[in-house]
Write a protein that binds this DNA or RNA. Structure first.
Length: 588
RNA sequence: GCCCAAAUAGUUUAGUGGUAAAACAAGCCCUUGGUAAGGGCUAGAGUGUGGGUCCGAUUCCCACUUUGGGCUCCA
């Protein structure tokens, strides 16, 4: 980290102290927890005696600015645990931290029985710093939001009130940041999904259950066809499974024990327990397992785009990013251990081809198990190490930057996850390649090898988009709703200049439709300016304007306008269609 | 699930303790206009659902549903 970033961080950290100072001054009796720096600002967690709301923000901000002007210093002092306990005897959260320092369980605020304290004005806090030297150096602050947060991030603990704030050295930088936030909100897939009529939610159907309109469905299917094309070239075969199953399938797979709270359960009239499928792998194993497999038949690559259902907590749901019915472009490769590298690399190739078609940059995360929490996983530490080493080798061979994330693995195996961000910078996992050496054990999946022996196989779970819902949400925000031609639900809007040219325009529109172009004819009695505006707001890539000039030509013609306003001039319909087809072919 | 906030016409929003206003969209009429909003008229909500307080509730209170921002979770 460079010096400038360190300075900014100290400033924001000092702003967090200033917030706590202001809050404890305004609301005596408020207990303080912790207040770290985050991207673009800071937060501080409080236990208020009486609830505060965002309406109190201006008052708090005013107090902060007032205190800031007093130009107090941030001074550090090391005290003994005993002294610290005396100083913070009325602050239960601080006392808890001091006790942990005493026990040697944490070193972030002190060490060896000594505690670091920063005092600023009349406010003291456990803190190792660093801080800026004077409160006047704190930049421009704006309180942004109020949120509940569990003490120490544990849902069994008390719910504290977290106040988020932004802090920048100058007002210009703060305004620029707030403007960026506003711009990001304009790309919000929930907003654009409504405006462009791609998907809807119904209170009657329920939360987390999106309904896809004709336009949205066009996009889903085109994306899915693209993935299928890439898979077909690499030897995948489509399979189809039912959406419910007996609970015994998940008892065998281990999902019932681990995820039964997240399963939508069904009891039949005869009293048998079924569940909506929350994943597809156990079903797919049964397709693999129904025949004895020769090593010559390996690998078997099954793919299926299908919905899975998960009873997510309502508070976790969000637009298309987090839903209860997830369309996975799922695939399972059943292969021999010796085939792992080739198969994983092949999937990675698909991921690369697919995402580069959209100009997406993905971050790579190697999701590993947490050796200190083996009860969360199936299988032995040896199996895990073996599987993880295989993935590490593949990642290294591809010479891409990746991070390792302990504890992020699936319960049956390590993963290579591909991560991207939404318009507000939140991280989402999209594609995934998961190596599974456990499920084959549980379902006794094997092939007969060259020696005529039964050989345990492995499974590779992979999804390219991950969830079509989530991928679509990211894509909508990536393009701000202006999809490339090949993905646009409506590719051409045919706009007659007046009623007189509707017949001619209809011929043009019919010809476009006949050639497989998604075209729409605007017959409203509006001015051409209005029709252009409407089509532009709908982000339709091409407009074909039809009037006297076009109708006079010997063959079908249209004047082309692009959605960015560029004039494509008068064109013969045939050659226009050919140009479009070429672009569509190239995923432009 | 937890914390905070919100819910008014298809959409975006205004407003009020005495049953609600507008713009866009829609329908009709006039206009037949050449590259981002031509004009007029009409219809459309009883204010998310259910309770409570009140002479009277869309407005105040409670619960639920849904949505947003977080927390926790995310095979």
């Amino acid at each position: 980290m460079n010096n400038k970033n360190k300075e900014l961080e100290s400033m924001r950290h000092s702003a967090a102290h200033l917030l706590a100072y202001a809050v404890t001054t305004l609301y005596p009796g408020t207990k303080v927890a912790i207040g770290p720096v985050v991207e673009n600002g800071f937060y501080y967690d409080f236990a208020f005696e009486n609830p505060v709301t965002t309406k109190d923000f201006s008052r708090i901000e005013q107090k902060m600015n007032e205190l800031k002007k007093k130009d107090f210093a941030f001074t550090q002092k090391w005290v003994s645990v005993k002294e610290a306990k005396e100083l913070f005897k009325d602050e239960p959260y601080k006392m808890e931290i001091i006790t942990e320092i005493e026990k040697g369980e944490r070193e972030d605020f002190g060490h060896k029985g000594e505690v670091s304290i920063y005092t600023s004005g009349e406010f003291s806090d456990l803190c190792k710093g660093p801080h800026i030297s004077s409160s006047k150096q704190i930049g421009v602050i704006k309180l942004l939001s109020l949120a509940g947060a569990y003490w120490k991030g544990n849902e069994k603990n008390a719910m504290l009130t977290r106040i988020y704030g932004a802090a920048f050295p100058t007002k210009e930088e703060l305004d620029a940041y707030l403007w960026r936030l506003e711009e990001a909100k304009k790309r919000d897939h929930k907003k654009l999904g409504k405006e462009l009529d791609l998907f809807v939610f119904s209170e009657l159907v329920g939360s987390g259950l999106p309904l896809w309109t004709p336009k949205g469905t066009v996009i889903r299917e085109l994306l899915n066809d693209f993935v299928w094309k890439l898979r077909r070239e690499r030897g995948y075969q489509k399979v189809t499974i039912p959406h419910i199953t007996k609970k015994e399938l998940y008892e065998t797979s281990g999902h019932w024990a681990k995820f039964q709270n997240e399963l939508f359960k069904i009891t039949t009239r005869e009293g048998h327990e079924f569940a909506m499928k929350p994943m597809n792998c156990p079903h797919h194993t049964q397709i693999f397992a129904h025949l004895p497999r020769s090593y010559k038949d390996m690998p078997q690559r099954y793919t299926e785009t299908t919905m899975v259902y998960r009873d997510e907590q309502t508070g976790e749901l969000s637009g298309l990013s987090r839903v209860r019915c997830i369309t996975q472009d799922d695939a399972h490769v059943f292969c021999r251990k010796s085939q792992i590298t080739a198969e994983c690399s092949s999937v990675w190739d698909i991921v690369d081809s697919f995402y580069s078609a959209f100009g997406f940059k993905l971050e790579v995360r190697l999701s590993l198990h947490d050796p200190d929490n083996m009860k969360a996983y199936l299988g032995t530490p040896e199996l895990w190490t073996e599987a993880e080493d295989a993935l590490k080798t593949i990642a290294k061979n591809r010479k891409v930057a990746y991070v390792e994330a302990k504890g992020e693995a699936a319960f049956y195996g390590p993963k290579i996850d591909f991560i991207t961000h939404d318009s507000l910078g939140r991280e989402w996992q999209v594609a995934t390649i998961q190596l599974d050496v456990n499920m084959p054990d549980r379902f006794d999946l094997s092939c007969i090898n060259e020696q005529g022996e039964k050989e345990r196989i492995v499974m590779i779970h992979c999804a390219i988009m991950g969830s079509i819902e989530r991928f679509t949400s990211i894509l909508i925000e990536h393009y701000a709703g202006a999809f490339p031609l090949w993905l646009s639900p409506v590719q051409v809007a045919v706009l007659p200049i007046s009623d007189k040219y509707i017949d001619y325009a209809k011929k043009v529109n019919d010809e476009l439709l006949a050639k497989g172009i998604r075209s729409e004819l605007d017959t409203t009695a509006e001015s051409i300016g209005k029709k252009i505006r409407t089509a532009t707001l709908q982000k339709i890539p091409f407009m074909g304007i039809i009037g006297q000039k076009e109708a006079e030509q010997s063959s079908l013609c249209l004047s082309v306008r692009k959605r960015d306003g560029k004039d494509g001039g008068l064109q013969m319909l045939d050659s226009f269609i050919n140009t479009l087809k070429q672009s569509i072919e190239n995923h432009e």
